[in-house]
Design a binder for these strands. Structure first.
Lengths: 142, 142
DNA sequence: TATTAAATGCAACAGTGTTGCAAAGTAAAA
DNA sequence: TTTTACTTTGCAACACTGTTGCATTTAATA
């Protein structure tokens, strides 16, 4: 399975994204490091065991806003979250990847693709594209 | 702005999708007919004025399950719904369209595209693709 | 260490969606 | 048309998700 990304230097990452380093935030980032795919609130809550629900929501909101993580909406499912690339800012998330949901292992991963498709619609100005794919992942096929 | 689709014969449509024809369901379908773009729960609730919240949720769920409407998730926004094509079944929704969100008028429309992009990832088996685009729609540009 | 700003925790609440059950409505056969 | 079987609706009650205001604690910086 594909690794989204890993946080090597947590202190730097938080600083880079203009967030203070706190024990709670490090605990949450550790969980993202532990999983090689996108995770849901449920998973994070289970991993944390002992936590404050409100603080968690505020932390996640701050992480999304400041470009540490991005939200992945998979139709009819729980919203999932995955680490962003370092270049993502609070202005714009910039990903050259698609979100892939495996029907077999149920994992959602961010998969980088070489040539991102270009779609043009007459009279429409397309500024952003988000692509969700469903199927069977590499690991589940072998 | 692009019309998603229209329901001509409501009785037939409901029967075709194996749902009984009831006054409430017809009222909900009428609302979809009235709007040429995807609408949110909020819009439906406002249009209905007088309704039962629980019945509405159950109706929407039945419509999605039986292939009358499809759900459109636009990141960070309210979920929207649009009429399906007649061929959609309860087994599989089949759309050759992308979901386009206009930043100016905030409308979400289903836009048919001639050649749906083909994405291939080594070792991955892609079965479905869902594409969300954001930008400026035809109407807002002129 | 002192100061200032940010993060956390608590209480309370609003919105969203669900379930069980009884009543009303619909479809189809007698 | 009436009967019957099944589906839909409405009510009450509830669970889950996410938010806000405010007091307290913690982190960053001088």
């Amino acid at each position: 399975m594909q690794q989204c990304c890993k946080v090597k230097n947590m202190k730097n990452l938080l600083r880079l994204k203009k967030l203070n380093e706190t024990p709670f935030r490090k605990r949450v980032l550790d969980i993202f490091n532990k999983y090689p795919y996108a995770i849901s609130m449920g998973v994070i809550e289970k991993e944390l065991k002992d936590y404050n629900r409100i603080t968690l929501y505020r932390t996640m909101k701050a992480f999304v806003k400041n470009g540490l993580i991005h939200e992945i909406l998979m139709g009819g499912e729980e919203t999932k979250f995955a680490l962003c690339k370092e270049i993502c800012s609070n202005e714009a998330h910039q990903h050259q990847h698609i979100h892939f949901k495996c029907k077999q292992c149920n994992s959602v991963t961010c998969v980088e693709i070489a040539k991102f498709p270009v779609i043009s619609l007459p009279n429409y100005k397309i500024e952003e594209l988000e692509i969700q794919a469903t199927g069977v992942c590499a690991a589940c096929q072998s």
